[in-house]
Simulated scan of single mutants.
Amino acid sequence: MDMKTAVNNGPSPSIDQTDTKRHFMRTKTVDSLWGYFFIFPQLVGLVIFSLIPLILAFAISLMSWDGFGERTFVGLDNFLGQFKDPDFRTALVNTLYYTVLTVPTGIILAMLVAIGLNKVKGKILYRLIYFMPNITMSVAVAVVFMWLFNADFGLINLYLKDWFGIEGPRWLTDTRFVMPSIALLSIWMGLGGSMVLFLAGLQGISATYYEAAQIDGASKWQQLRHITVPLLSSTTFFVTIMSVIGSFQVFDQSFVMTSGGPAKASYTLVYHIYDSAFVDFTFGTSTSAAVTLFAMILTLTLLQMKISKRWVHYEE
């Protein structure tokens, strides 16, 4: 080989470089295989218990089926029937009312409690106490609150009469108070979970912002309004989405405490789905209501994500 040819071809790769590249590719392949191996059980569970039931739900929503006999394809008749059904409209109104009662109040209270516990001694203990209702079985909590809300011998009405001389309302049997009563229970149960999220958000705010504000003479209220709340907007956004999704799925409280009454004043969308499926045995109608609920939640979530660009701020 002459000198000119050697210069044009350049230096040939060494054997060590080739072996190193092969070893790197082999290691990467092995790591990928191990990764797929460890997530395989979760993927199987996701497909069997989530993806396949979701597809079947969409299919059954287009059919007329009592759960036992033959399935008859009816197209969109189940969905059209839902919007003509007075029970569905009642459930939708009650669910929206419940959402309005619980979501803003729960978020504000959780943020205030988190701010109050952020720098106090023993905050770990307080955090545990506030979070305990969040992990307690909702049915057990509902049974306890049935006793508290009892109009004749419940503790709430007893204290109202002894301390303030007020005759308490019939919390769970009056159409005006039943949904606020359920909302009060739900706010108490969910306060701890939202509070922990806000506490995590507060830990991520740099102290330099507050130090600079104090140097400029900002009051505590001004620091809260112009520093804490804006920098917690990303946490507030997440808590809002999760709270709205949870509020549209409320069922346990109304099922245990009131059975959807009185006069369907606590009849929610999920209760309507349950009632259509396991009381009336109209699984096609029930599934169409579930798919409609899914579409509502998805639409609200996408809408919140679009609007969030205007008010959510991230610390840089």
Rank of each mutant, 00 (worst) to 15 (best):
D2S: 15
T5S: 11
N8M: 14
N9Q: 15
S14R: 07
D16H: 13
Q17L: 13
V30I: 15
Y36V: 05
I39V: 15
I39C: 15
Q42E: 02
L51T: 11
I52R: 01
A57V: 11
I60E: 00
L62S: 10
L76Y: 14
K84I: 04
P86I: 07
P86K: 03
L92K: 00
V93D: 07
V100M: 10
V100E: 10
A110V: 12
A114N: 04
L117Y: 05
G122Y: 01
R127C: 07
L128M: 10
I129V: 15
I129P: 09
N134F: 11
M137R: 04
S138W: 02
M146L: 08
L148C: 06
L155K: 03
L158M: 10
Y159M: 14
D162F: 09
W163F: 09
E167H: 09
E167K: 07
R176G: 04
V178Q: 03
M179H: 03
P180E: 02
L185V: 15
S186H: 08
I187A: 00
L191Y: 05
L191Q: 03
G193T: 12
M195R: 00
Q203K: 05
I205F: 08
A207I: 13
Y209W: 06
Y209P: 01
A218P: 05
A218L: 01
K220Y: 12
F237D: 02
F238Y: 09
T240E: 02
M242P: 13
I245M: 12
I245W: 14
V256M: 01
M257I: 00
T258F: 03
G261F: 07
S266T: 01
V270S: 04
H272F: 12
D280K: 08
F281A: 06
F283I: 12
M296S: 05
I297D: 06
T299L: 15
T299W: 12
I307T: 11
W311I: 07
V312F: 00
